[in-house]
Every structure is written in structure tokens, then in C-alpha cells.
Design a binder for these strands. Structure first.
Length: 365
DNA sequence: CGGGTGTTTCCTGCTT
DNA sequence: TAAGCAGGAAACACCC
């Protein structure tokens, strides 16, 4: 629970940075749709934003249990107004509670305090607080990114002799990548007050992976145990073997595995990961969007960011959209996805996929 | 240990 | 020209 507030801060930054002027704005259709549909869990950034103000309310984007008393009051007032509820029927002396206390109340208790509005408040509160596993994971990624960046900042000198320094470099690359303009919302999420502080030192961009992106990852075995001469190495770079190169040596892997959980089951499939982001609009804005919900057609808005998230999930910091999309294309054969011709970054769920239809989503929740 | 599955990585060629 | 798409090939991780 201790990290919850950090998470909410991350989410807050994530969400607010997502709507920086230079960023792709959320799809108007989507917003309209979401705003109209009370059955859907509404995104933090929409439902909780008072329409009459241009500034954000103080509780905006924060997790409810982190709200202060005044934030709780503000939130309640917002819903009173939104629901055109007669505020005189509420004993506001009972509203003198912080977010944590608010979250402890049952539906009945809120009903007692707020009358008919109690149900509404309870539902809205639990829309925000019920974070599914996958989203929880995404949030934990954001949190760990923040943590790793902090540790990087603290230890300004990297221990290059350490056998794990490759990992540090990977993290540096990722940190740099995530703070690129294209991924501005991550940079905000990672470090609320030090955004961009790591930029400018690494030249590697995952966008260039085809022309050497992952080549620069330098097959650790080759680099570690085969001290090529410069010429030999360049020659080797020119003509790589086809297929997937061997991964890290066992000793390096052991080093990396100290971070892994003991039992790492196969986990969810890529298409399920994509689906789960899509069906939780409070997190998917800016990453993916539905083009046609009924038909299961969706679009990648931030392809590289989704790829990075997927890579994080699979503990693979060199994941790119190109690789992810190859995996997506394998789904065509299995009819988990269907082709959408002529439209870039657009995919469609096929008959062998499930769990994305509105009826299915409602059943599951 | 081998086979199956689901990716991951790299590649060439094509399209937008 | 860059980005994305298509799909072959091979390696890899995990499960049974």
C-alpha cells in the first residue's frame, strides 16, 4: 500500500503528460463516446475533469486513497454538481474525511451519508480503484521505471566493471527512449520533477533498429568472449546470420534473473495484452484506440510505446513495434486477428479471439 | 529429452 | 525517403 501514492502520482503524470499540446490529442470520437456511455469505466482524465474549468482539479489523476480531505470534498462536490443532486440533503460535516477513509466505506455506508448519490459515488470510486492485473502491472512498470531512474541518478558513476553493466546500459537506453518527445507521457511518469534529465547522452534510438538498433545491443556472447578485431567485428555486423541470435550467456542471465520472480509462468499472450489495454480506457488512451468497437477494429496510436510496454512485460528492453507487429501477423493464420488492408497500424480481432466484445467485457466485470 | 507453441529476431521485398 | 506491412527462416523460452 505504501507505493500506492507513488503509483497515483505516476498515473497522474502519465495522464497529464499524455495530453501535452504537442502530443496526439485523444480521439474526439472516443472521448465523445466515452463521455456518453455511463456503462463504461470512464478514464480518469475525462470523467473526473470538471467541464467548466480548464485547469485540473487537485484530485485529478490521483488514486482516491491518496486524496486529502479537501480533495475528497472537491470530488464529492463535483459529483453533486454533475448529478444535479440537491446538496442541501448532504450533511457535509460527514465529508470531513481523507481519501483513505472514503475508500473504506461500503456502498451502504455511502448510501447512508449521501443518500441516492451514495451509489453513484461508490461506483465511481470503485471504477477508479479497481485496477485489473494487467493495468496494475503497467502501473508497476511506470513505478519501477521511476525507481530505476532514481537509482541511476543517485549513482552517477556506473560500475563498468560489473558484469551487470550491460543491464545498466539497457536501462539507460530505455530511460532515454522513454523520455523522447514521442513518449513524452512516459518521461513525465517516470520522474515527476526530473523529466528529461537523462536525455542527450545516448544516441541509440529503437526506431533505427532495422539499420542497427538491435545490432547495437551487441550480442553479449560475441562481445564478451570473442574479442574480434575492429575489422572482423564490422564484417560480422555487415553479414549477420539469419534468425534470432543467441541470448545472454548463462552467467549474465543469472545476473538478470536475480530480478525475475521465481516462477514466471508463460503469462498472457500478446493479443490478450493488447486486448486488455483496449478494454480499459482509463489506461489505453494514447496507446491504442478502438476504430470500430463492434467489429473489433483497433489502431496503435503509439506503436513504439506499446512495444516497449510489451517488452517490459517480457523483460525485453529491445522490443520494438516492428518485432511486435511480426508477432501480430502470425495471428492472422490462427485467425486471432484479421487483416485490415490498406490501413497502417490498424488490426482487427478475429474469430479465435475473445474477451474484447462489450458484452464479454461486461460479463467479466 | 523431444516436440509443440508462442513468440523474438533478422531479413528481403513491397506498399503507402 | 521513411515507416509500415508481409511473410520466410531460425532461435529461443516455456510447457507437456
Amino acid at each position: 500500500m505504501a507505493g500506492s501514492c507513488e503509483i497515483s502520482n505516476l498515473l497522474s503524470n502519465y495522464i497529464s503528460a499524455m495530453y501535452q499540446p504537442e502530443e496526439v490529442p485523444p480521439d474526439p470520437d472516443l472521448l465523445t463516446h466515452l463521455g456518453d456511455d455511463d456503462n463504461l469505466p470512464l478514464p480518469l482524465s475525462n470523467i473526473h475533469m470538471p467541464a467548466e474549468t480548464t485547469g485540473k482539479p487537485t484530485w485529478y489523476g490521483e488514486m482516491p486513497h491518496c486524496w486529502s480531505k479537501s480533495q475528497v470534498l472537491e470530488w464529492i462536490s463535483y459529483h453533486v454538481e454533475k448529478n444535479k443532486y440537491d446538496a442541501s440533503a448532504i450533511d457535509f460535516s460527514c465529508c470531513n474525511m481523507d481519501g483513505y477513509t472514503l475508500c473504506q466505506y461500503t456502498r451502504d455506508q455511502l448510501g447512508l451519508i449521501f443518500g441516492p448519490l451514495g451509489d453513484e459515488l461508490y461506483d465511481r470510486l470503485h471504477e477508479i480503484t479497481s485496477v485489473p492485473d494487467e493495468l496494475g502491472w503497467i502501473m508497476s512498470v511506470l513505478r519501477s521505471e521511476e525507481a530505476s531512474q532514481e537509482s541511476l541518478l543517485e549513482s552517477s558513476s556506473l560500475e563498468l566493471g560489473n558484469s551487470c553493466s550491460q543491464e545498466y546500459l539497457e536501462e539507460m537506453k530505455l530511460a532515454n527512449f522513454l523520455s523522447q518527445p514521442d513518449l513524452g507521457y512516459f518521461s513525465g511518469a517516470m520522474s515527476p520533477d526530473s523529466s528529461g534529465s537523462l536525455t542527450g547522452t545516448m544516441s541509440q534510438s529503437p526506431h533505427s533498429q532495422d539499420s542497427g538498433g538491435s545490432d547495437l545491443d551487441l550480442d553479449p556472447i560475441d562481445m564478451k568472449h570473442c574479442p574480434f578485431s575492429d575489422g572482423d567485428y564490422k564484417k560480422d555486423l555487415k553479414k549477420r546470420k539469419r534468425g534470432r541470435p543467441r541470448k545472454v550467456s548463462k552467467e549474465n542471465r543469472d545476473c538478470l534473473e536475480t530480478k525475475k520472480s521465481k516462477h514466471s509462468p508463460r503469462g498472457i499472450h500478446l493479443w490478450e495484452f493488447i486486448r486488455d489495454i483496449l478494454i480499459h480506457p482509463e489506461m489505453n488512451e494514447g496507446l491504442l484506440k478502438w476504430e470500430d468497437r463492434r467489429e473489433g477494429i483497433f489502431k496503435f496510436l503509439r506503436s513504439e510505446a506499446v512495444a516497449q510496454l510489451w517488452g517490459q512485460k517480457k523483460k525485453n528492453s529491445s522490443m520494438t513495434y516492428e518485432k511486435l507487429s511480426r508477432a501480430m501477423r502470425y495471428y492472422y493464420k490462427r485467425e486471432i486477428l484479421e487483416r485490415v488492408d490498406g490501413r497502417r497500424l490498424v488490426y482487427k480481432f478475429g474469430k479465435n479471439s475473445s474477451g474484447w466484445k462489450e458484452e464479454e467485457v461486461q460479463e467479466r466485470s
